[in-house]
């Protein structure tokens, strides 16, 4: 069987064999990784190593895992068990936590996400993920701030709520504004327009306004943690009600520096029934938008049923961290072989 031309990956026009990053950047990247490991080492974290291939996968609206067939018979390589390349090491690490691991674990590994490529995206990327049992929302954010100060050499890390950031740069309350109000704000812009025929929901409007009008202001001078996301964007984070006005927010936070999103953290959801419900609803929305549904049962759900200890978990894009640390404007400047050279 021969591959048709369309099946061949797109190659870099020059088809050069060398790396896209200069050597001094690759050296800086290696030094940053060594400092990152020292940071966790000094805080008593155990480095763990879990598989990239998994029978389970996360059911997220906008994460599309890559499928792998594990064949038994090399003559029929398309027949076998379906595995997924992990979109993050979250499932395996939570299984370790529920199975009595030491209270603080971290991992540096590869993760894979389909249909993501650009100056800040590569389908295969390096992720750093850590969990610490006993952390609450506050101490989880503080650990991330400490890591940013330590690795980026900045004096401080600021914090701003998702609501405040929207009030500052869009002038609307993201938790209360209607879809019409969000759309009207975007329509005022004479220079950029959201185009295309696809109808979008409230979260997608928020996402557009965040990308277009808020993100570039985040972490301008010093890194900034954006926290208290809308409850509808909780993913695997807990949800709580704000004391002032009972608005439901997700205990989820993201680290930004110079407008670039570097890390995402959760005060982890512990209740398996809530996750089951989110999985079901996500799959429904995926199918409505023409995407395949993903398996809802997983051994991480089993782990949650057996009892995941209260903890905070954070995932950090290492390629982006290296990029901002050395003043580059694309992760291609800190990757040896991005996907078009892979």
């Amino acid at each position: 069987m021969t591959d048709s031309a369309a099946d061949q990956p797109q190659r870099d026009a020059g088809n050069r064999f060398g790396p896209s990053a200069p050597w001094d950047r690759l050296r800086e990247r290696a030094q940053l990784l060594a400092r990152l490991r020292a940071f966790f080492e000094a805080r008593g974290f155990l480095e763990v190593d879990t598989p990239l291939l998994s029978a389970d996968t996360v059911v997220d609206l906008h994460l599309d895992p890559l499928k792998v067939v594990l064949f038994e018979d090399p003559c029929t390589p398309e027949q076998g068990s379906r595995y997924w390349l992990q979109t993050s090491p979250e499932f395996c690490m939570k299984r370790l936590l529920a199975a009595g691991s030491p209270p603080a674990i971290y991992q540096v590994c590869k993760a894979f996400r389909g249909a993501e490529r650009g100056p800040l995206h590569n389908p295969e990327f390096t992720i750093v993920e850590w969990y610490r049992i006993g952390d609450d929302y506050e101490s989880g954010m503080e650990l991330l701030a400490e890591l940013a100060r330590n690795l980026l050499g900045v004096p401080q890390v600021e914090r701003r709520s998702y609501r405040q950031a929207f009030l500052d740069h869009v002038g609307l309350d993201p938790h209360q504004a209607t879809v019409e109000e969000l759309a009207a704000f975007a329509a005022q812009d004479q220079t950029v327009q959201l185009a295309g025929a696809t109808v979008i929901d409230r979260d997608q409007w928020l996402n557009y306004l965040l990308a277009q009008y808020v993100e570039s202001h985040l972490g301008r001078d010093v890194p900034e943690i954006l926290y208290d996301f809308p409850a509808s964007q909780a993913a695997l984070a807990r949800v709580r009600s704000l004391t002032d006005d009972a608005v439901r927010v997700a205990e989820r936070f993201e680290l930004y520096y110079r407008g670039i999103e570097l890390a995402n953290g959760y005060h982890e959801l512990l209740d398996p029934s809530v996750l089951e419900e989110r999985n079901r609803s996500n799959n429904q929305i995926r199918e409505n938008s023409g995407k395949p549904a993903l398996p809802e049962c997983s051994r991480m759900l089993d782990a949650m049923r057996s009892g995941l200890p209260p903890c905070v978990g954070v995932a950090l894009g290492f390629d982006r961290l290296a990029m901002v640390a050395c003043g580059a404007s694309s992760i291609h400047e800190v990757l040896a072989f991005p996907i078009d050279r892979a």
Binding site: E116, L120, Y208
Partner: peptide
């Protein structure tokens, strides 16, 4: 330019 903020959809 491909952008995909947070857990959001691709733009």
């Amino acid at each position: 330019n491909f952008v995909k903020p947070g857990k959001g959809n691709a733009l």
